[in-house]
Design a protein around this nucleic acid. Sequence first.
DNA 1: ACAGACACTCTTTTT
DNA 2: GAGTGTCTGT
Length: 733
Amino acid sequence: MSTIYDKLNDKQKQAVFTTEGPLLLLAGAGSGKTGVLMHRIAYLINEKHIDPYNIMAITFTNKAAKEMKERITNLIGADGNFVWVMTFHSSCVRFLRRFIDKIGFDNNFTIYDSDDQRTLMKKIFKENNINSRVYKERAVLNIISSCKNELISPVEYMKSATDRYEKGAARIYEIYQSTLKKNNALDFDDLICRSVELFENCPDVLDYYQNRFRYIMVDEYQDTNTAQFKLIYLLAQKYKNICVVGDDDQSIYKFRGANIENILSFEDKFENVEVIKLEQNYRSTGNILDAANAVIKNNRGRKNKSLWTDGATGANIELRQFANADAEADFIIKDIKAKANDNFKDFAVLYRTNAQSRLLEERCVTLGVPYQLVGGVNFYQRKEIKDVLAYLKTIANGSDDIALLRIINVPKRGIGATTIAKVADYANENVISLYDAMTICENIGIGKAADKIKKFIAMIEEFRDKVAKKANIANMIEELLDKTGYIESLYDEGEIEGESRKENIEELVNKSVDYEDGELSLFLEEVSLVADIDRMDENADRITLMTLHGAKGLEFDTVYLAGMEEGLFPSAMSSITREDLEEERRLAYVGITRAKKNLILTSAKQRMINGETRYSLLSRFVNEIPRDLLDKHILDTEKKYTQRTYSYEEALPWENKAKPDNVKNTLSFGKQFKVERQKSLDYAVGDTVKHIKFGIGKVLEIVDGEKDFEVKVNFEKFGIKKMYAGFAKLIKI
DNA sequence: ACAGACACTCTTTTT
DNA sequence: GAGTGTCTGT
């Protein structure tokens, strides 16, 4: 008898059939982990007769969730719809919408995205006269986010604060939290940690969900942070049927709080953990896997494993170096155009920073190559979309000051800064929301402006009425645009600009059609949790342009890794500590393993970054790929794309016996990245040194490493850091 | 109240 | 280089 499990290899089968108790699935890139998860769910339902309602699968992106849902229903039919397949964030919204009143919030809360957070923080800075030369909004928000990821409350952070800067930040954190509460809003991180708070404080709620989710599966487990771990840990405590799938080599979100310890110490957190490794790769050619393995083996902090395939060796990896970023972009897009044969969807260009997309996009437009750009400015963060959403938020939640402030004078209706400041003062004094203050603005003494505000309020009230009467959302948005004259105001910035903004709004209106009449809150909620990757359409016949981070979990026949340059990739900011550099290397590993058949690495000697021209050397990650895997004959054909070609001796540092003069010259001016090993250091153990980011510290240890000196420094503010001397640029003081 | 001019910072990655 | 914030004149 043949079953759906026959196609699986032994390890995969073992993973599917191990349903009880904690299971750690270490799944390398392209090892078919999503398929295994799907079959596992099918097995639970069909063979173990588990109610689909009792199964939870958690992902990070809506796209992954959607894909999983589709695959489950394909595998087992309509029963699959009852499985809880959601992202961490949307799961938490579900929990909180239902129960957050138990921990003192209103169930009707709004969700702040990073833009809203910044606006709120700016407001807090202003109201509290915080010096934005000492405290940067972004920096404080980062601190707050890290705290939340680690489940540290403002009070706890205050206790642990060692210097005045941290104490001040702790105070701002406290104000930030209370303002959020006042606005009846939660930020992204709150969604997770308030859920944890809910479960910890309300055993009955926790018990309810524990019973519901008897089997839990977590995808991309290497990306979970402490708060997310705590969440699933709590949920899994009763039945302990938890299966986590991850790959420590693909952990690339440390900057966002992902805690690699979650995967490395899973076996300590749960008892009797079964560990299964999936190492057979079904995606890439042998050469590509060899390259990936060769690069990642330079990392020290990892579980040892290595990908293999019984498929073809495949083509060599191409390496091309260009004089500047324009030539690089030009080559890539022309190359795709020549190879594509109208199969554009098989091609992807991946890069480290969003800024790199501009040149590529321009080339696509001029050369007529269809493309889709993922990332950059998220659709839902575009000005016009945010404006419309702010109107809708104001209609849905009267306490959301941030939304109200955004649109109170957009389009211009003669309610200026002075007026708003007066109303805001009044609201603060009387501890009411800005909106409530506006409803009684005739008491405030703002003269004629009161009439304008009254008119605005009357309009919002009218729409609230419509929502209560279950108005159609799309119609309502159209009416809103009409009444406010918003569309016309867009054209003030120019015809073309206005047209594209109008199209975006139309897209938003189209999206709203999927929602039932009167379901405004639901619409707003889902819209605020959409990531850019979720909008990617794999079936459209276009090439894909996106960052390496965005590419995780995807695969393409042909992948271009653009900007393989020291300072850009690895980023200059991530080349300081070994941990950071290893995260960059994991990113390189992710990039390489996206390719199924062809991999092309490109770099530019000269590139404009932040308005200044920078010169850089080939990325060390290229050098880590064995020489015999790299294609050699490429440089002859390069002439037509660059003003000047470069020999291998120039392109590959390990062949640099005598460096040509011109290379030295270009490197001697502009901002450069000195990656050559320093002969000796002008500081020694015990010296006090200064670092550009970490400040003052004492040198504890200097190790003469393979490529560079590794220096261990104890910084006054940041503690002990290990760094490469060439990058750290420590100055003895 | 608001438009236009200048100055300043910045981005590495994002649910 | 772009986007944001601040200042100035109407």
